[in-house]
């Protein structure tokens, strides 16, 4: 039973409070979505969970252990893995080599300097399975720079999965994708193994309402409301502050960011 807890987490950049007393509990194997208008502090919250940022105050606990002071690398090693909003890959490597690299680091074979990489069949086997899992099995030998944007987003998730995570943080996995690519990503996310705790930041409300067990609405760094998709849909405050303002954001995210 792995549970991720945040207790009165606060983070400010100068006078701008981007995370304010966020206390949340993420239960093992559940699916969470974090939504909120742009600038609500969603990505900052992810950066705090993953260890890219240190909170000003408050605590983060994984399975009861205080992990607040651990950096990104240590958190990746105890089971918190993330994908990034902007593709953050090994650009000169192939799809397979990207995933195999992450597997090699996780399996502690990366420091080996006396045997060629190709001899580590268990690493390559794992990388193949993950490529299959995210639907990139046909592109394994393609260099990242020749990969379509949507496939790069899939690889982004693959690198996070290679960390053998307990908790998977996906930062806008469908941002900038075409409808077909979004459908493929939607399928990928829904097929993730059930023992994994998954937290996504997502603007596509179709995906969010269908996927999430719990939805957290952030607004100006605070938890505005938390509940099941049905509760969120019917929440007056959410309608007014979020869905109302932007219109119910069904499929509107594709227009936000042009695909490169």
């Amino acid at each position: 039973m792995s549970t991720l807890l945040t207790q009165t987490l606060c983070k400010s950049f100068g006078s701008l409070a981007v995370t304010q007393e966020v206390t949340l509990s993420f239960q093992s194997g559940m699916r969470y979505a974090i939504i909120g208008p742009n600038g609500a502090g969603k990505t900052t919250f992810f950066n705090l969970l993953a260890g890219n940022l240190q909170p000003d105050s408050g605590q983060i606990l994984l399975d009861g252990r205080d992990i607040t002071s651990l950096d990104v690398t240590s958190r990746a090693r105890i089971g918190i893995a993330r994908s990034f909003q902007r593709n953050n890959l090994f650009a000169e490597m192939t799809v397979h080599d990207n995933i195999a690299m992450a597997c090699a680091i996780q399996d502690n074979v990366a420091p080996v300097f006396w045997r060629p990489m190709r001899g580590f069949s268990s690493v390559h086997k794992k990388a193949e399975l993950i490529a299959q899992q995210v639907g990139l099995e046909d592109d394994r030998q393609t260099a990242v720079r020749h990969l379509s944007y949507g496939s790069q987003r899939q690889l982004e998730v693959a690198l996070a999965l290679a960390c053998k995570p307990k908790v998977l943080l996906l930062d806008e996995p469908t941002s900038g994708m075409s409808p077909q690519e979004t459908a493929r990503m939607d399928h990928l996310i829904k097929a993730l193994p059930r023992e994994l705790t998954v937290i996504v930041i997502e603007h596509d409300m179709d995906i969010v309402l269908e996927f999430a067990d719990q939805i957290v609405v952030l607004d100006y760094g605070r938890v505005l409301v938390q509940g099941t998709p049905a509760e969120i849909k019917n929440s007056a405050i959410v309608r007014q502050r979020y869905l109302g303002e932007e219109g119910v954001a069904v499929g509107s995210q594709a227009a936000e960011r042009p695909a490169p």
Binding site: T73, F84, N88, L89, M93, I105, Q106, V112, R115, M117
Partner: peptide, 29 residues
């Protein structure tokens, strides 16, 4: 450079932040 160590150096050159994010100690390498 064909060993895992060498491949990790390449990965660090291409994207040191991602190496950290998947659990690699960039400093040690």
């Amino acid at each position: 450079i064909i060993t895992p160590f060498g491949r990790t150096l390449d990965a660090i050159r291409q994207n040191a932040n991602r190496v950290s994010a998947v659990g690699g100690r960039v400093f040690s390498y």
